[in-house]
Write a protein that binds this DNA or RNA. Structure first.
Lengths: 142, 142
DNA sequence: AAATAATACTTGCTTAAGTCAAGTATTTTT
DNA sequence: AAAAATACTTGACTTAAGCAAGTATTATTT
């Protein structure tokens, strides 16, 4: 297979790994891990999820997730509601405080990305969006 | 600032985080960590480096790096040569065995990226390279 | 209906990654 | 010659994460 192509992609992967490192730095410096932030993010997007669903979505160890959930409940950012029709399962939702935590992380993420593209003019920024949208489209198998 | 733009970039970041996870999975399952693989990679590219230079390039803790180096020397994949003009510093080079380790990781990385783009035709693959090259160019401040 | 298997989550144990700070040897600056 | 800076090492610690066994509940089989 075309090694030039593969090597170009790999070069980009290394480059973008560094970019993501910079952009995610604020999360790693917050009191939440990247995985915890993803949990918060998912819980904010989907109204209510069970641990099992979260585990599937994020592809993380269920023991680890269980501990994250316990910690979040203790912190008061997450609420568990036992499912009536299945007492083993719990629907998870962010509390008001949890939503605030989400907002804070989310806003900071915006700021980081804003920094990333602040040196570009509006047209270039739009071009960038077009480019990454096409990249995503190409790399998404239907 | 244009929030649509920022949100599009962030969406791509999430997408590409998952891509990188898949592509790097084989390293995490090898006997080396991602950081160790990066060390091996850098030492392969640049003929000889000091720990300090490596630390700067990879932006990692020097204590952690020191331990990685010790481990690599013990494993026989890395050689330290004390710098004559500065006895505190050591030039680091991969041994023949180290180069083989690099080759193995490198080849596997090629395979992973090949999988990533195997569903695309040649023209689409070239298009993809063009796209990511442009993305990198835009995100690289001069 | 009772036994068996599967599911949803929890808990204990362990490892490995990574950080921080203090320590040693050497080199540079004052 | 003393003080400061540099290159690296070491000890002590934290935390992310994985694995496996355990508990309670629900679904399936016989």
């Amino acid at each position: 297979m075309g090694n030039d192509i593969i090597h170009s992609i790999r070069d980009f992967n290394r480059f973008y790994t560094a970019i993501l490192g910079v952009v995610n730095h604020h999360i790693l410096e917050s009191e939440y891990s990247l995985t915890e932030a993803r949990v918060i993010y998912e819980l904010h997007s989907a109204a209510a999820l069970t641990a099992r669903e979260l585990k599937e979505m994020l592809q993380i160890d269920e023991g680890y997730l269980s501990r994250i959930i316990t910690k979040f409940v203790k912190n008061g950012i997450l609420r568990k509601k036992q499912v009536k029709s299945d007492k083993r399962a719990y629907l998870l939702e962010l509390t008001a405080k949890g939503n605030k935590v989400f907002e804070a992380i989310d806003q900071q993420s915006d700021v980081q990305v804003a920094h990333l593209i602040e040196h570009l003019g509006k047209a270039e920024q739009k071009k960038l969006v077009e480019l990454v949208t096409q990249v995503k489209a190409l790399l998404t198998r239907e």
